[in-house]
Design a protein around this nucleic acid. Structure first.
Lengths: 217, 217
DNA sequence: CATGGTTTGTACTCGCTGGTCCGTACAGGC
DNA sequence: GCCTGTACGGACCAGCGAGTACAAACCATG
């Protein structure tokens, strides 16, 4: 067998494909789809533009592959969650925190989803894999919600998808709009203290929204 | 004076400039910056590409002018708010509703801000007008917040900018990510019923977040 | 009705960029 | 050693698209 440690250079399709994909993630996340340059993606790798077309056929398909890849990364984030053993409020807190952390740790993901929205989600719409994977989140949320309702710690009548949007909205927005917010209000949202405060905020906002007490109308 | 009713065609700089700006707003909002075509902007007007360069010098400056314009549109939305006469909770509700309505009614605004974020807000950063205008929102929020706190209907210690992000985040996200959300979950967020429910949600979320009762930790 | 500045139109340039042509090198089966 | 398919590379091309050269109208003056 060849040595695994040393970089077995050429003739490694897996490695080449992966390298192109990583370079494409960085390039598309930085510049968006139209402004991204295939030549620049090639320059980020140790291979050539020809290889990009060899493995991915076109710039569009490459971008579609990038989306599949980063949406796939969310699956891992979800799986790390403690499932049904925790009390509902605690499970919900962890869900919110995991969502927050994933967005904060992966600004490329956020940017690429923004880019895809400007493209009107034509790639996501064409990918059953992405659609299915994400729709699963709703199931998890729904289960926790139902359990919490049964135990009387959450109020009834909450739509899981609406709740998902409430959670993701804040987590997404503070990353996607980091630059305009930073320019307008002069606060760097990447600072650790700000991020920690927002993380607590997100949890509190959700738990208060779900609380059964009908104090706020 | 010339007739105001009939279309006084050429030799109308104001009208020409305005027409170009409107066309540019539509084009940039639809396609983003890099994918937008100056020729297509010209085609959306009754004038020519030459005029775009005559009035705006370059594609970049045209985009900067577009941003100034749409951010300016927010000022009008704010002014319609009842100021300090209402009770704090009611004032806050109106603020949230106005924010929600503005985003829902102006998807171009949302898209253009998304595009600007992909450009890392370099245009907003270079425009003191935009920065100043928007920072003013915080003042309004801050005042309502302080009054509510004094009257005991809001809890203390809420940062106005954080609150602004909480409100805008949801309103922005459901428009900016309309397409991916629609593709993944199969729900059209433009439907009147869904929008109405989300509007109520936004208000409730904010009021619950601000409520002094310390039921949720 | 000259005159000069402003507004508008046409036809062009020219660099850039997605995509391809044609060829080489490598590995394994026989 | 030969042969076939897979992995790779560099040079090239064609069309697109931002920006401009060159005027021609137009309008307000004197």
């Amino acid at each position: 067998m060849p040595d695994d440690q040393a970089p077995r250079r050429s003739r490694d399709p897996e490695h080449t494909r992966r390298a192109i994909l990583d370079a494409a993630i960085a390039e598309f996340a930085e510049k968006g789809f139209a402004a991204a340059r295939v030549d620049d993606i090639a320059a980020r790798t140790s291979t050539t533009k020809r290889m990009i077309y060899y493995y991915f056929q076109s710039k569009e398909r490459l971008f579609a592959a990038v989306l599949e890849e980063i949406y796939g990364g969310m699956r891992d984030a979800e799986r790390a969650l403690a499932p049904d053993v925790l009390p509902p409020a605690e499970a919900m807190r962890r869900l919110v925190e995991a969502t927050f952390d994933h967005h904060a740790a992966h600004p490329e993901f956020v940017r690429l989803v923004s880019v895809e929205n400007i493209l009107e989600a034509k790639n996501v719409a064409a990918s059953p894999a992405i659609r299915g994977r994400n729709a699963a989140v709703i199931g998890t949320l729904s289960a926790v919600l139902a359990r919490g309702e049964r135990e009387g710690v959450f109020r009834p009548g909450i739509d899981p998808l609406d709740l998902h949007m409430l959670i993701s909205g804040f987590c997404f927005y503070r990353v996607s709009n980091r630059h305009t917010l930073g320019a307008i209000f002069g606060r760097d949202l990447r600072e650790a203290e700000v991020a920690a405060a927002h993380r607590r905020m997100a949890v509190e906002m959700v738990l208060r929204y779900l609380a059964p007490v009908s104090s706020a109308k």
